[in-house]
Simulated scan of single mutants.
Amino acid sequence: MAKYSQVLKIVFWFWFLFIGSEIKVFAQNYNSQKRATVYATHFPESKAKINKFIRQHSIRIQKKEEMAERISAEFVMPENNLAALDSLIPSLGWVVENALTSQDFQQHIRQIKINLQDEAEEQNRLQEQLRQAALEAAQKQQLQSRLENSLHNRKRLQQELRNYEDYDSLVFVAINIYDEITYPTGNRKIAFVNMPGIEYSLLFPENPKTGTSNDLYQGYLIKYLFTRGKSYLDLGVYKAVDNNRADSTLINELFLINFGQDFYPRHFGRGKRKYLNLYTCYQIGGFIINRNNDKHNTFNPNLNIGLGVEIFKSKHILIDNKVSYFLPLNELNRNLRSLSYNASLNFVF
């Protein structure tokens, strides 16, 4: 059994190395090779686009694999379709690789033609010698063997020349499109973005207390989204509505900074729709309080947990809103913990 297993391993590795080398040689025969890797936010749409392009522009498909979260294709197309492919790739999603490698085979083709001419002259010379009457058997056998070798070399060179002519003005394309990760954990590469924005918030304390908290705060924040995941930073200020300045110890302002992440449920589309994407979220950070008497300004940690719905999402704009629970992690917990509503607008910068 062990011997049989060892034989299987040898056969497998031979097959793997042979197939891999064949594909590599296949690609290297072309004047140009295009390789692209894309992480698609809207994977089904991107998959449909690349399949349509392959149907319209490829002349031969070397390999194609379609899975739930990935499509991989290797195909050959005319070189004059490169501009159309370069226009398509950025529309598929976040491009992490888009490389074109070109080779000039003209010098090699010229050398093949020179070698063909040399072989033709060699054959004529050998055939002329074989027609001579005064030849010993050993000499004739030697000349015949050299002629056969020359004929073999000439056929090989002719086939090589035909191969290069077949590949002339063609491009070998290898493209991989992945369903881009829509939450910031996991083993896939995260897509970083630059999406600043503004956020408006209302904070409703559960147990407002005279001398500590107001009934309502409204906030103005900068929300900087830096992954499509989504991960973001919130920085801004909450101000008490109808501030009672006679209450000298009342907290009239909260200066806040938070780090947050949103998570899309797998069974609700994972954030792929343009409208009404459901998500859960958390924020962790801290805030500095300011009182009417300008005393006791301290930094306080906080944690928020919430539920949100993206109203509209495209590659360039995100309109979002959520409800969360604002939870101070110190002695202010009882009188400042609050229900909050946030609405935000982010855009690609």
Rank of each mutant, 00 (worst) to 15 (best):
R245H: 13
A246D: 11
D247M: 02
D247C: 02
S248R: 04
S248Q: 03
T249I: 00
T249R: 03
L250P: 06
I251R: 02
I251Y: 02
I251S: 05
N252V: 07
N252T: 04
E253G: 01
L254I: 11
F255D: 12
L256T: 11
I257Y: 13
I257C: 03
I257R: 08
N258C: 11
F259Q: 03
D262T: 08
Y264L: 02
Y264M: 08
P265G: 06
H267A: 15
F268D: 06
F268T: 07
G269E: 02
K272H: 05
R273E: 09
K274Q: 15
K274S: 15
Y275P: 05
Y275A: 04
Y275V: 00
Y275Q: 00
Y275C: 04
C281T: 12
Y282H: 07
G285S: 11
G286F: 06
F287K: 07
F287D: 07
F287S: 01
I288Y: 06
I289R: 04
I289A: 10
R291W: 01
R291E: 00
N292I: 00
N293L: 05
N293K: 01
D294A: 08
D294Y: 10
K295Y: 12
F299S: 03
N300D: 09
P301T: 14
N302A: 13
N302C: 13
N302L: 14
L303G: 10
L303T: 12
L303A: 14
N304E: 11
I305V: 15
I305P: 00
G306E: 01
G308W: 03
G308S: 13
E310R: 08
I311E: 01
K313P: 00
K315Q: 11
H316D: 15
H316P: 09
I317M: 06
I317P: 02
